[in-house]
Design a protein around this nucleic acid. Sequence first.
RNA 1: GGCCCCGUCGCCAAGUGGUAAGGCAGAGGUCUGCAACACCUCCAUCAGCAGUUCGAAUCUGCUCGGGGCCUCCA
Length: 483
Amino acid sequence: MSLRVYNTLSGKKENFEPLEPGKVKMYVCGVTVYDYCHIGHARANIVFDVIFRYLQYIGFDTTYVRNYTDVDDKIINRANERGIPSQELAEEFIRAFDEDMDALGLVKPTHEPRATAYIDEIISISQTLIDKGLAYESNGDVYYRVDGFPDYLKLSKRNKDEMLAGARIAPGEQKHNPMDFALWKAVKPGEPSWDSPWGPGRPGWHIECSAMSSSLLGDSFDIHGGGRDLIFPHHENEIAQSEGASGKPFVKYWVHNGFVNVNQEKMSKSLGNFFTIRDILKVYDAEVVRFFILTAHYRSPIDFSDLNLKEARTGLSRFYEALHSAEQTTGAIPADPAVPVSTLGAELKQQFVEAMNDDFNTALAIAHLFEGVRNINRLIATKKFTKKPELVAQVKDLHATIIELGSILGILGSQPQQWLEKVKLAGLAGLDISREEIEQLIEERLVARQNKDFERGDQIRAELEERGIELLDSREGTSWKLK
RNA sequence: GGCCCCGUCGCCAAGUGGUAAGGCAGAGGUCUGCAACACCUCCAUCAGCAGUUCGAAUCUGCUCGGGGCCUCCA
């Protein structure tokens, strides 16, 4: 089966056929840089990071553009509040964005343009739209004439007349029609501005994406992504601008990710349930956050809660524990060329690819990986496992395959033991017990057991268990984990 | 009000016409001095009702419940 992608424009899953065979051009709306990114941004960026990785994995030469919108009302307002130039504020939050995305393990897009570097292109598109009668100048502002574009609202499938009922013209705007939107805004006091044929001013909200995408990817390209909430008005307006100016189809596949809810409610500043990425990463491991996000399909809403994150941590630990035990048991055994080649990895890979080909179904793909984990554990649990080269080869094969497929999702790239240790110690922070205390009790229990005082030994086990620590006895000694 | 989405085991979550993946939790068993880990076994007929169909969680209609967008928003 080849790749199928849900297209917001058609409302259906479609076979994915890029405009140019073998090559994919993808544009994803990045952030307006006026504040720290929240968990919703994390989801959007992780989702498209995985899509980018997967497209490359299945052989597409992929160009991925993700922009920074660094000029906008919100940036200007925030900068004025703080009494600094808006460009300085934008730079600060561009750096913060980069740090956050780095922490979440995202790969770099091919291009990361900034809106302010494309002012000439923005002016040029606006002029073209005016020349074509699709836009008009009005006291130094330039507005898009929505009535001139019959396909307007084709993406969001809204009704123009009914939209009109709710539309407003803000004070100071010089629109012919309330639904018209600004391409260019005349400068006001305290705002950054650039020269233009209509006097000094700055871009409106949607035009920067039309300018950056056409400059870097051409008038027509394959995938345009972003959060659902961008469908209207942002993406709708981009279509109007780009198709209006070029006369060509803008985007072939529109891909939108679902929201993050917090404890079943929409996350919003007014509800006070607003989490920034950096706050979350103080509490949860970045890979756990990533894993959690990918255990749901990208179009479904996802509920961010402590319980769900803990469950994700347990699930991801299961992977690392299996990888660790595979390495422990087979690491020292050299490959035996006389042994039949394992097909388990190839089978797993096929299932994984099939899942991902169905509209990037990471949840199903991860379920298949879990089955790979169970296979590893099952093989290792076989009697005299290390003496059976065929089984050893299968474990090595599965181990390598799981790591390879995990890399497409951006997970399982850590050293298992280190990762498990790190998460364990981080989890300790939430408990009323220290590492030293645990180790001391383990030592005490060891002595008791050597004296066959199992009663005292079990007492220590029970005490630690009550305080959230599970003891694990093995030939190598006693270790512990979070319960 | 308009448009759109969703309701699958205690919890999370796949499945969009062919007879319910996976994870967490739970029960029983193997292993263990006891445990834990791991493994094995067990654990849902898909909000409700009515249709279409040889066959529906999947299509249609209605009802109930939840959510989103309607120019701040990933």
